[in-house]
Simulated scan of single mutants.
Amino acid sequence: MLDTPLAEQNRVDGKIWQVATGAQIQSLVFYNKDAYAAAGIDELPTSLDDFTADLQKLKDAGYLPLQTAGEWVTGAQFAMLANPELLADGDFYAERTAGDATFADSAYADYLEAYSGWIADGLVDPAALGFKYQDSIDGFTSGAAASYIIGNWIVPTLDEAATDFEVGVFATPSLDGSPTGQLSGPAQPYSIMQGSKHHELALDLVEYLVSDPEAIATSLASEGNFRQGVSYEGSALNTEVAAILDASPGLVLGTSGPGIPGGFGDEVNKQVQALYVGTSPADAAAALDSWWDLNAAQ
């Protein structure tokens, strides 16, 4: 059971308290294939610079290049973009708490700089903070926006939307174009209550649910979640997401989990949104460092 998705990443005090059947896959860019073709994009971007260049092509072709929104969406999309790079080499969060790393000198600084440029160049809507999550879905499915960073939970909605264009999906770009992990969350996780009168039976059941191939496939299909090397019948878009996961080096955490101070995701959201009202990328990164210093357990 120790090889279940995100088991090691969610280890607490040396112990695994929870195991999951699969994972949500979140570092994804859903895109309008017609829009990309109209913009002359015939090769999907893998690096951040290439992605930015393609967003400009989409703007020139008359589309809103990248759909976003206010509420929680802004920071969540940023984490989906940046965390795979942030956590590509070791445990950045532990290094940050130990004082061996800073956000100001990390992948976050590069992605904040890029995002600030997207705002300045009109590659995202400058009024995006006034949009709700549902507005962002509507903006993409209407065909007005060409790209949308969001997790795999949106697949059923896109499948049912009956859009006038075909939707594709690719992994969020890394800094240099090399493959990175997928930001993920445990899906269909199991824990055994301390007060259970049948610990051994419960453990046997959990082991079956997270290790039997047929049980895993059935469970994943019921919610549209994923696990490397496990396939089940799904939509074409669902199959594309599964292929992205299978090609990924692995899974990484988001802005919550062991070793991450509570409320960090809210602070990331705040600082990304601050870019829209004139905060510089450097100041946003410095603010994240200051927040961490005040809130991380020493």
Rank of each mutant, 00 (worst) to 15 (best):
A76E: 12
F78Q: 12
F78C: 11
A79W: 02
M80L: 05
A82M: 10
E85V: 11
E85D: 14
L86N: 07
L87R: 06
L87P: 00
G90E: 10
D91A: 03
A94K: 09
E95N: 11
E95A: 15
R96W: 13
R96N: 08
G99F: 11
G99N: 10
G99Y: 12
T102M: 02
T102V: 05
F103N: 09
F103I: 05
A104K: 12
S106N: 06
S106Q: 09
A107L: 10
A107Q: 07
Y108K: 02
Y108L: 03
A109N: 00
D110R: 06
L112M: 14
L112C: 12
L112Q: 09
L112R: 10
E113N: 14
E113P: 02
A114W: 07
G122S: 05
G122E: 02
G122Q: 00
V124A: 04
P126C: 05
A127R: 05
A128R: 03
L129W: 00
L129Y: 04
F131V: 00
F131H: 11
K132H: 02
Q134F: 04
D135P: 07
D135E: 07
S136K: 03
G139D: 11
G139K: 09
T141W: 01
S142M: 08
G143A: 13
A144F: 03
A146V: 08
A146I: 13
S147E: 06
W153F: 14
T157E: 14
T157H: 13
T157P: 00
E160R: 09
A161E: 06
A161C: 08
